[in-house]
């Protein structure tokens, strides 16, 4: 099958074609840019939900149950489950699917496991492309399960319309929840394993952190000064407009499914709100901008790696820096001059 046929079959959700197209995008196989260009006009319809949180917090189980709930409601679901790649061997053990296998015979659920392949930030470099393939294939929801995150892996926020941040009791004190980073990207907070001791404290601490943030989700606040490219958003919060989205704090027991329907309802409500107040346009514009900048930067970097003259110059400059004859910024500027001219 050539890529044209794979694309046309993937667009009507032929499972093997979807799967093969994901591999083409993930491995950047020859022709992948043409294939991507062909599917891109069909993207933008799915509600993309990121599920992130620390290792062992129950993300996979929650994703499994969220998928089951959306299926019950007659919706189709694509799942991208990311696990870490070994920085030493390049290998990976992708184990998220283990908790989702009951969906494997359901054609309305497509599950794909990915290794991070050296990318930091909680997802793989190609996750964005895989999400686009599933979106183009017509899945109503695309769920991204990140690797188990620590404090600063926030990249899923630039891929997802809605971010559900999963927390569990017993991980730390109230200073953890007011630190910068991952706590700022949640549109929905899910306190999982609610049968464990300490659940009330986690909820209270998140509530306090949200109060300090002025009742507005981190992402909406951080970007409230921006105008969307269409001028559809005013950015500033006006009292006559809809009240700002305050991230709800939900309690679940993913293992039994308790609270999962509320998580789905809340994600839907968040999407509804984004569409209503114009923030969706802005979020998707930000995603497009960061993706475009990233690709341009990749291309420049790859062009540099192929450019013998630049590589020779870089080597010479590096020796000067190492011998303390030049500082690294001056060397960087010299190299830039050489590449640009």
């Amino acid at each position: 099958m050539g890529w044209q046929e794979i694309v046309s079959r993937a667009l009507v959700r032929d499972i093997r074609a979807v799967s093969r197209l994901i591999s083409i995008v993930e491995d950047r196989r020859s022709g992948f840019e043409d294939a991507y260009a062909a599917i891109y006009p069909h993207t933008g319809k799915a509600h993309v939900i990121g599920i992130t949180g620390p290792p062992g917090s129950g993300k996979s189980t929650l994703v499994d149950k969220i998928a089951a709930e959306y299926r019950r409601r007659g919706k189709t679901v694509g799942i991208v489950a990311v696990d870490p790649t070994s920085p030493f061997t390049g290998g990976a053990l992708l184990g998220d699917r283990l908790r989702m296998q009951r969906h494997s015979l359901d054609d309305g659920v497509f599950i794909r496991s990915m290794g991070t392949r050296g990318h930091l930030g909680g997802v793989a470099r190609a996750t964005s492309g895989v999400v686009d393939v599933l979106d183009a294939a017509g899945y109503d929801y695309v769920l991204i399960e990140t690797v188990g995150v620590g404090q600063s892996e926030v990249e899923v926020a630039s891929l997802a319309d809605t971010v559900a941040l999963v927390q569990v009791p017993g991980l730390g004190d109230d200073i953890q929840v007011i630190k910068a980073g991952v706590m700022e990207i949640g549109d929905v907070f899910v306190v999982n394993k609610k049968d464990r001791p300490g659940v009330e404290r986690v909820v209270a601490e998140i509530r306090m952190a949200l109060d300090l943030a002025g009742n507005v989700s981190g992402r909406s606040r951080a970007y409230s000064g921006h105008h969307g490219p269409t001028g559809a958003t005013t950015g500033t919060v006006d009292a006559t407009e809809v009240a700002p989205w305050r991230p709800p704090i939900l309690q679940t027991m993913a293992e039994s499914g308790e609270g999962v329907a509320e998580v789905c309802d809340t994600c839907d409500a968040h999407m509804h709100r984004l569409s209503e107040d114009g923030a969706l346009v802005e979020r998707r514009f930000r995603r497009a901008r960061s993706e475009t900048m990233q690709i341009a930067s990749d291309l420049i970097w790859r062009g540099l790696a192929d450019d013998r003259r630049a590589l020779d110059a870089a080597e010479e400059l590096a020796w000067k820096v190492a011998r303390r004859e030049m500082d690294p910024y001056a060397a960087g500027w010299s190299l830039r001059e050489l590449i640009v001219n």
Binding site: I15, R16, S19, L94, R97, L98, Q101, S104, L105, R112
Partner: peptide, 28 residues
């Protein structure tokens, strides 16, 4: 296999042949 640099998708116990084949296709 992981240590040999491969990406290993582990699906766990008690899989039916149908589940294994469906997973093999989705995971390519």
């Amino acid at each position: 296999l992981r240590d040999a640099g491969m990406e290993v998708i582990y699906t766990g116990l008690r899989q039916t042949p149908e589940q294994i084949v469906a997973a093999a296709i989705q995971e390519d």
